[in-house]
Amino acid sequence: MKPELGALIGAVAVFTFFAVQSEVFRSARGVANWLDPASTLGIMAVAVALLMIGGHFDLSAGVMVGTTALTVGIVAVEFRQNLWVAIAVALVVALAIGFSNGWLVTRTGLPSFIITLGTFLMLQGLNLGLTKLFTSTVTVGGIDDVPGYAAAEWVFASRLSVAGTEFRVAILWWVLFTALATWVLLRTRFGNWVFATGGDEVAARNVGVPARRTTITLFMTTAAAAWFVGVTLAVRLTSVQANTGIGQELIFIVAAVIGGCLLTGGFGSAIGASLGALIFGMTQLGIPYLRWDADWFYFFLGAMLLLAVLTNRLVRRYAEAAHR
């Protein structure tokens, strides 16, 4: 039983639907265009999927993208540091937030939903407050004037030319991270522990799985992914709004669920989450290509989510059918 099967069928269907009707959509340039939103979303969705398989949510994942992007901007521009120093500082900040989320969840046993909702609101306030404090506006700009920008641009925001069409490098990173996450999940001890911790934490602990460490590592992985996407945005746009990333946390979860992750944990895949992100990207750009009203996008996304949740419910039933 492959978790990503439903998402694969969905992705093929969505692609066919738009490709048949829109010539732009199926052109190389169109593909490069809709792969771009899919890539940054996909990097986050993969990390969020690992966390969901491990049995937890992270509502602060969206705003953390903003926090890291703003940290890069403020440290580099306001404190006049090399961009790489700023990027390193942002990573430390992200990992600290991720650790704090994981530590609080494992220590208190409270639902991660409520803990990370607290983190989400706090970061939202901090993002605005600190940005205003340092820049007296709600934007940090001028990131491209900082030493180290050229190298950072090459790593995070360059374009690769494939057969005359330019693709953003984030697409490559997305594919690499998906492959890495898949390998970790299916072929390492840690991956086995992720499934076990999400499936039944008490049982996992009884056989010696370090469930607490696994959970904290997963929260830190999500934070690291937010850092990567945050840095990508900061370098690409060279200026960052204080409200960046807010509201995205639910989209990450939607992509992971469309990809076959169970809301209750213990089941799902990284490839599935990436396919969920792909469906999102294709729909986001396919709808304007067909000259439809963009409002239909959210209707469509909601329908996909419902369909996915209903399918996932069948999976769970199947696996627990012969219970005793």
Binding site: N192, F195, G199, A204, V209, G266, F267, E320
Partner: peptide, 14 residues
């Protein structure tokens, strides 16, 4: 044992 995991994954869990 974790119901959603394969037998062999459960067997060697931990």
């Amino acid at each position: 044992m974790i119901p959603l995991m394969a037998i062999w994954r459960n067997f060697f869990l931990g």
